[in-house]
Amino acid sequence: MNAAGAAIGTARRERAKAAALLLPAALWLLVFFALPAFVLLDSSFDRYADAKVSDDFTFANYARVFSESVYLKVFLRSVAVAALVTAASLLLAYPVAHFIARRAGKNRDLLFLALIVPFWTSIVIRTYAWKILLGTSGAVNYFLLQSGLAEAPVKMLFSPSAVVVGLIHVLLPFMIIPLYASLEKIDPGTVEAAMDLGAGRVQTFLRITFPLSLPGVGVGCLLVFILALGSFLTPQLLGGPGSLMISNVIQTEYMETGNWPLGGALAVVFLAVSLVFVAGCNKLFKAEE
């Protein structure tokens, strides 16, 4: 066998190895994502009448999604909440990630562990904790009343702002971790070189550190935005009478009316818009890089 033949054989073996390594994840995705997504898509063309679903092909569910203004209204609210949560998370997460990556020194592992610890607790319990903290008879109101800062309990729960606060708390680690990964990779020499050449701290941050951390910013924003957009539990527990988000609407179609075809159509449109957003972000951040 000549050298070219050996190279081809090695390449084939590498490909086979890569395929073998990818196979479990690919199968997992096929069974637990692709197939359910297909079932969802398929059911979205079914007909629903008198509490009964029949498999007569129809576009009526999609027509309803686009013609009923309530769905657009709820979707726009979901986008606005998700955008707000993403922007606030970025502002809060960046200094934390920067500190852990660049300044924490020996304590880095400890701080990183502290960041991951909340994931060990269920999201339900973490969200309920806000009810206990911010409730009328909760810890914050107790402090406000005892210290004389308020004369009557302040209403903090069951409002859009409570939903935003709850979501930021739950999703913050999803912003910090990719930011940390990006910031940690930046060669300290580049920052030092910029400062040696006369750039101030702000200028160094804006022209060196931030642009180099953009991949982390992109991934973090994407994760937080998508998770906030599809959040169900936090608006359900902390939201007020007008805090409906798109996942809550989809849930009622599945669980209250049993109108799975309409729920499916809403979910498909929601998924499509999310995918367009992901593609747009990818393009934007690739261009920035």
């Binding site: 629903y48 008198d50 509490a51 009923e68 309530v70 209204k73 709820v74 609210r77 009478p241 007008g242 805090s243 409906l244 809550n248 609407v249 009622t252 179609e253 209250e256 009316t257 049993g258 109108n259 309409l262």
Partner: peptide, 17 residues
């Protein structure tokens, strides 16, 4: 209920939105 719940759910969504 079965004949009307779809319409009622839409109404409920309008109230909650």
């Amino acid at each position: 209920v079965a004949a009307n719940q779809d319409m009622w759910n839409l109404l409920a969504n309008r109230i909650k939105s």
